[in-house]
Design a protein around this nucleic acid. Structure first.
Length: 514
DNA sequence: CTGGAAAGCGCC
DNA sequence: AAAGGGCGCTTTCCAG
């Protein structure tokens, strides 16, 4: 096979150098880059990660190990040779995967997006993020006081003490002891649900569900965030070092664990207290960038629907425009309620929502919900045609793709089970949209990192950048962005609609952001 | 004691 | 009769 393998620690990490070219292959490059950085070694020029390539070829196998890939791509070739060392296996896997990437036209996605993203993520993980442990501690203490009071009120409303964190005990209190009506309420496998939806309905007729809703929100924030995050601060760096997973989700999104930094609260004021604890230290500045309405913009592009494209091209409020279309009214007579309704419909379309769910969500009749959906598709025929075609094509080919060719296989589309088939059809609708958004956001990471690197900055999206001159340089790097918090930056991809970038920065970006 | 399922809920 | 897509974390509860 003509492969040279470096010895010692490097071979143990699965780095392979081909003898005829200087290209280096790695399995889980991001992990190795972190390990190398920790030891102060540089790993130059790695241009192929077998884990990422294997995942692109078959996303049904998340975070494949070297053994998984050997099993999938080398063993079936029927060679009689022994598997060899891990680096040798990695080299063989690369050779087997490259033709697959080319056949599926995934090579540009691999080379231009996934490989650069892996290197950026390694730096982000290594850099970590600063969090104000004292602020979190104060928040926890305050939440604890409020929780004690809420507990007392819940026990009083129930008539006795019980474990407020146990849905089972709560269900017995609500429906067996207090005999609250269960008619029309959502059920779980074991009985009537006690989720927020149900408790909100019951809140109108009894004080316990109302208090419990308050209790749950605070208990969640305290246990998941203000209590847990400080424990994850690395004593060596004083920062939190999350792990990003690049070869995991079915749609191509990233995920984050230990802790999950992608679900830090932002919606409620109590939640924003948690988010505010992620503040740039003295002398540094945090920058965050995001796209506004990216999924609906992608829908407009993929569906090539003139109305949606026009709405985005002219910078309209998309939910208000949808409201005007669906309700058949002029754009100036759209009220906040109309807009709220249209927003639910817009999201529902992306997720493949049916009329039942829409009716429940909006507290309207099934007939009305059915009518809204009908009118939506009448007014935006491009969307209807696109969604129908998506499902038909997916059924024929057995998979769906994103704009950059990322695949997701959907064998369930031909299932005899109606429920499983319907689920697969919703996935067939959602995945090209959600997955394309993931592609574009990764591409934006690569471009932004390159821009800031050119400006001699060390960029870390959502992480701190150490540089006294950051603000000046960021302005330059992100031209035509100026001092305001939100601006249009650039078109990241060849879309039929403009993408709008939202930037937030400051010593505390959470305060600046919406 | 550990592991896993279920319920619930935080984010996009 | 009909689960809106994608995640990860905490708690309870039960099995081993």
């Amino acid at each position: 096979m003509n492969i040279a393998v470096e010895g010692g620690a490097i071979a143990a990490l699965g780095v392979v150098i081909s003898a005829e070219s200087p290209r280096k292959t790695c399995h889980d490059l991001k992990a190795h880059l972190r390990e190398f950085a920790r030891r102060g070694i540089s790993l130059g020029g790695a241009d192929f990660d077998t884990m990422l390539a294997g995942f692109l070829v078959n996303p049904g196998r998340p975070e494949p190990s070297i053994a998984d890939l050997y099993q999938d791509y080398i063993a079936p070739l029927g060679g009689s040779r022994a598997p060899g060392s891990e680096p040798q296996q990695v080299a063989a896997i690369r050779i087997a995967l490259i033709p697959k990437l080319e056949e599926f036209e995934l090579e540009p996605l691999m080379r231009e997006i996934e490989m650069p993203v892996a290197k950026i993520l390694a730096r982000m993980e290594q850099a970590g993020i600063a969090v104000d442990a004292a602020a979190l501690g104060a928040t926890s203490a305050e939440f604890a006081e409020k929780l004690t009071e809420l507990e007392r009120e819940c026990y009083a409303a129930a008539g006795h003490e019980f474990n407020l964190n146990s849905p089972l005990q709560l269900r017995r209190v609500l429906f067996d002891e207090l005999k609250l009506p269960t008619k029309g309420l959502k059920k779980t496998k074991s009985g009537v649900s006690t989720d927020a939806d149900v408790l909100e309905k019951l809140a109108a007729i009894h004080p316990l569900p109302a208090k419990l809703l308050e209790y749950r929100v605070l208990a969640k924030l305290k246990s998941t965030y203000s209590d847990s995050l400080p424990a994850l601060i690395d004593p060596n760096t004083g920062r939190i070092h999350t792990s990003f997973h690049q070869a995991l989700t079915a749609t191509g999104r990233l995920s984050s664990t230990d802790p999950n930094l992608q679900n830090i609260p932002s919606r409620t004021e109590d939640g924003r207290r948690i988010r505010r604890a992620f503040a740039a230290p003295e002398g540094s500045l945090m920058l965050s960038a995001d796209y506004s309405q990216i999924e609906l913009r992608i829908l407009a592009h993929l569906a090539n629907d003139p109305t949606l494209i026009d709405a985005f091209a002219s910078g309209e409020d998309i939910h208000a425009r949808t409201a005007a279309e669906v309700l058949g009214i002029s754009r100036d007579s759209v009220t906040a309620d109309h807009r709220r309704l249209a927003k639910v419909i817009n999201f529902g379309i992306i997720y493949g929502m049916g009329p039942q769910r829409l009716a429940r969500e909006l507290a309207i009749s099934l007939a009305e919900a059915t009518d809204y959906i009908k009118r939506y598709f009448e007014r935006l025929p491009g969307v209807r045609a696109y969604l129908e075609d998506s499902v038909v094509q997916a059924r024929e080919r057995g998979f769906v793709t994103t704009m950059y060719g990322r695949r997701r296989y959907l064998p369930e589309l031909n299932s005899p089970q109606g429920g499983a088939r319907a689920q697969a059809e919703r996935i067939a609708i959602n995945t090209p949209i959600q997955g394309t958004a993931a592609d574009l956001i990764k591409l934006a990471m690569v471009r932004l990192d390159a821009a800031l690197t050119r400006a001699r900055l060390d960029a870390r999206i959502l992480l701190q950048v150490h540089d006294e001159l950051l603000l000046e340089l960021a302005r330059e790097a992100l031209e035509p962005v100026s001092t305001a918090a939100r601006h249009e930056m650039e078109r990241v991809a060849d879309l039929r609609v403009p993408l709008r970038v939202e930037l937030k920065w400051g010593l505390n970006w959470a305060q600046l952001g919406g």
